[in-house]
Amino acid sequence: MGSNYPQIAASFLVLATLLSGTAAHADGVGAGTLIENTATATYDAGDGPVTIPSNTVTVRVDELLDVTVTSLNSGPVAASSGTAVLTFEVTNTGNGPEAYVLTANPAVAGNDFDTTIDTIAIDTNGNGVYDPGVDEVLTSPATTRLLDADENLTVFVIVSVPGDALDGEASDVDLLAEAVTGTGAPGTVYTGQGVDGGDAIVGAGGADDNAIGSILIGVTSVDLIKAASISDPFGGTSAVPGSVVTYTITANVSGSGAVTELVVTDIFPAGTSYEAGSLALDSASLTDASDADAGEASSSGISVNLGTVAGGTSHSVTFDVTID
């Protein structure tokens, strides 16, 4: 029976390595985890209670391959021209370390126009924003590092918007992630390609996933129209000394986007004097002082800060001057 001793030693080694697999995760036991089962029997054969163990059966959990891709953009990314950045999250939903090949496809059916993929980058500093020169750009074929089970990675797809894209046009970009070990029908087995030389098996998701990010072109333009009306001291409309000229500057913002920090300024014509307190925005009076309200008037002219103005809206600025 002495030959059994090495086997007993081996059984203790098994116990020692019970937890050597990838740590357990919410999505399942880690690949490489050893599952061991031993029953114990007690009985009475006439000489008092006897306790004996069964043999221990051991199986190892294989590697499940799966992944999810989601768009992290809350809606279409507004773009005009140049580049736009789409943000995705790639999550290893398998139970072992796995890397993924990323493919961005800009030619999605239904696109008004197609963008050009510039680069795929990883959010190296983890701030959720693409930082050129800081975030690692993946060289083709774009392959992530090994992601642990349940680990996720923020991925940026940087695209170029063609110059002829029109206001209001939309374009989708599809990001596909595929397990490096392999993809296929659920249940497909890659023998020996899992953790520690175990098998890898394709999970319910096929070990690949994709998500769509959208770009919406918002070209916004501003037209300023200036009009004047004159009332002379005699009840007419002649431009004579003492006549009051009311200027109306209408800012028409068109397009699907918005403009920011829109400031309307005007200089008083030579030979006129500003009528103190006459400045108004959309018929609401503004003080002349440089203060909390949007407008101010100086000796030379007026300035009204409209801030961010959405396309499709207009605002009018009015003020009066008197002809000297």
């Binding site: 001793y5 086997q7 059984s11 163990p53 043999n55 175990g198």
Partner: peptide, 14 residues
């Protein structure tokens, strides 16, 4: 580790 873990170990205690 592969071969070892793959087989349902039948280790009888002496």
């Amino acid at each position: 580790m592969k071969n070892f873990a793959k087989f349902a170990a039948a280790i009888f205690l002496a």
